[in-house]
Design a protein around this nucleic acid. Structure first.
Lengths: 151, 151
DNA sequence: GTGAATCCCTACTGATTCAGTATGGTTTCT
DNA sequence: AGAAACCATACTGAATCAGTAGGGATTCAC
């Protein structure tokens, strides 16, 4: 259960795509500029996202990426696991469980597992569609606020 | 939100202490052997746990550690934060939040925060007393099973 | 059919963190 | 006095992270 910049960047990119669903392919360069993500780094993430079947790619000039499924059908959990690998407990895993005499009978392991389950639940319930909506609302209200100030 | 071996070892040690509440100080060496934790590494963890006010130390021969409060009043969250520092979101924190144009208006940040909150909730609800009870039950049922097999 | 834009892939690297070790000090019991 | 134990800091090898480098392969526009 280790969240790195891959997840952060990857989710930003996927939300970006979700906000432009149906607009045709969006290039990685465009997203990297809009989201302030290093271009070559983002490219790598898209390779992983494509291999996981979450985005489809169009090659060549005017090419780019689009969600492979409706935003409603893609969860944050899928995005994170595509980029970081299976979201499992980082403590008390495999070899350690064998080393500690208790083996299977370990109260600590239960807590770690409950924590992982909780995170999986949060990520599994959050769809890109919902995040795109939230993002849109946040930007709208920010615009309103900016206008009110007269900027 | 990064869980390392410190948390794993630290929690094992604290559960060990909770299982021996009232028995007087337990030496780090004893715990390190019982839980298969490198001795010097465990010593460092106890320094942190003591500075966080979770254990009290008795120096000198026959010395050792004991819970500074009833096991009922110590949570896994307190143990983890004593060892790893504040349990905060590892993505979209400080500087990054400033770098991404959205600033405060970021849907992704909400998800990360909800995940962190979920973990804090799990850890905050788990007391050492409860874990010690669970541990005892697990060991008891393991014993029964072993006897049944005739070992 | 050439050139530019774009995706695809692998390898590399500097910095940081992890897990553990080393060394030596201080306190207390016997 | 000596052993047992806690206290504190510094060091180190290995792994991981975040990002870069350098090139391919594919497609559109002209």
């Amino acid at each position: 259960m280790r969240l790195t910049a891959k997840s952060e960047y990857g989710l930003l990119a996927m939300i970006d795509l979700a906000c432009r669903e149906g607009d045709g392919p969006v290039s990685a360069r465009e997203i990297s500029e809009r989201q302030a993500i290093p271009a070559k780094f983002l490219e790598q993430l898209f390779v992983a996202l494509r291999k996981a079947g979450l985005v489809s790619a169009v090659r060549g000039a005017r090419g780019g990426f689009a969600l492979a499924r409706p935003a409603e059908a893609i969860t944050v959990l899928q995005v994170v696991e595509a980029l970081e690998g299976p979201l499992k407990t980082t403590v008390c895993d495999g070899e350690r469980a064998a080393a500690c005499g208790k083996g299977k009978a370990c109260a600590a392991a239960h807590v770690w597992e409950r924590a992982t389950t909780a995170v999986r639940s949060v990520f599994g319930d959050a769809t890109l569609a919902a995040l795109a909506r939230t993002q849109q609302e946040l930007e709208d209200s920010a615009d309103v606020r900016r206008e009110a100030v007269g900027g």
